[in-house]
Design a binder for these strands. Structure first.
Lengths: 232, 232
DNA sequence: AGGGTTTATTAAACGCTGTTCAATCTCTAA
DNA sequence: TTAGAGATTGAACAGCGTTTAATAAACCCT
């Protein structure tokens, strides 16, 4: 399957011009398929070009770079995920948040390579696109608002902190699961672990509002502000 | 700094033979330094060879492959970490486990690139060395034994599940922190987040023994055994 | 319809990567 | 002193992302 559509002009005319946006979209679909099948590390310029029906150079006419292609795939994937996170089923915050976690891990179970492309891929010092930060912020905010519903005594700052803690915890399970390393640790399902974690956190959170730990003294070598100022 | 020791025979005799084990060790130190300075992705064959004072081919006389060098560095790093995990300070399990988490994140804060080499690097389908699995198992076991001390009603299976849950949660924070993405989510310190998480889990765990959630119904599309058989 | 311009496409090249290997050199043991 | 063993090298290979000059097709205008 070298050419795609039946009326693909590239069969007879290799240098025929194709509508730009359509070609971009076809490239993104090809890229998505490669990632789905073989993981983000298999997305090479030459392989993508062949899958899309042209030569490597054309990629750079359509996109800025290969990472740029990946970011576009990620953007679409993240957008598709975000729709799943709104209108969560459940009567109370507990149920909704547990469902959120389970849904999240369900999706990762089905498309682990796309998850890795989203979160394992981007390395330090890379600059993150705006939609990326906004999408995560939105997710955190929706978690935080559920937490404030659950525990009205929570300040905005505290709710935010707890939402980050919860997200990063789930993310830890998700990341290990998507990279195939969770099985090295346990037979337990990712969803089971996450559900247990969320349940415990929510139960403790809904119980007492303050975080005055019962007399635990830790060796604190003074790394970091325990109290925090509000953030935009 | 091209040559290392003052009596380095490679200065006058480029093809002089050097003691094999010593050279191996020198290579590992050079590799570790490269990872520390520039991250695991900067560990290339030619750069490592130059840093160790020879040419790329020699690497393959000393090691099986470049990933093999990385695994050796990881092995030493993990061993060094493991010593930190034994003899935890603290009277009760709560304090000891909180200290464990804080120590762990402290180390990652100081050597984030070594952490990334250990956990972000190895990709799916890669076969993991025995020491890797054993070291993680040992860590999980020490967590599990603390948990059983904390909550004597816990079965071995439950303790293991909870230890995995706790570890993966911390790992999530650690991974995001080491890759520089935690700052995108919050101003909060990694240690603060982890400490809060551990505190909540332990508090809930020491309270009630069973996990009968307070009537929460989730959409369960039947993915996975909720109860689990014991694992060897 | 034909000519000029614009633009998409391509092949080749650059510098990088990990890895292999024949040739070469050094050292050691007999 | 010499033969063999073993370490080291440089060249090569296939792949990578990316750039670019040349080319061919399509468009616009007369």
């Amino acid at each position: 399957m070298t050419s795609e559509a039946p009326d693909d002009p590239s069969r007879k005319n290799p240098r025929a011009r194709r509508p730009r946006e359509e070609l971009r979209q076809r490239t993104l679909e090809a890229a998505r398929q490669i990632i789905l099948d073989e993981g983000p590390e298999a997305l090479t310029a030459r392989k993508l070009a062949k899958a899309a029906g042209y030569t490597p150079g054309t990629i750079y006419n359509l996109f800025d770079s290969l990472p740029d292609v990946l970011w576009e795939v990620n953007r679409e994937h993240f957008a598709r995920m975000s729709t799943l996170f709104s209108n969560l089923p459940g009567e109370d915050p507990q149920t909704r948040l547990r469902n959120l976690a389970v849904r999240y891990l369900d999706l990762i179970e089905k498309e682990p390579t796309l998850f890795r492309a989203l979160f394992d891929g981007p390395r330090r010092s890379e600059t993150f696109p705006d939609w990326y930060l906004n999408a995560i912020s939105a997710l955190l905010d929706s978690i935080a608002s559920e937490l404030m519903l659950l525990s009205p005594g929570l300040s905005k700052t505290d709710a935010h902190r707890e939402s980050v803690a919860m997200f990063t915890a789930i993310q830890g399970i998700a990341s290990l699961h998507a990279s195939g390393r969770l099985d090295l640790l346990t037979q337990e399902t990712a969803a089971t672990l996450a559900d247990g974690l969320v349940t415990r956190i929510l139960r403790d959170l809904s119980r007492g509002e303050d975080r005055s730990d019962g007399g635990g003294e830790t060796e604190d070598r003074g790394h970091g502000a325990r109290a925090s100022t509000d953030r935009g």
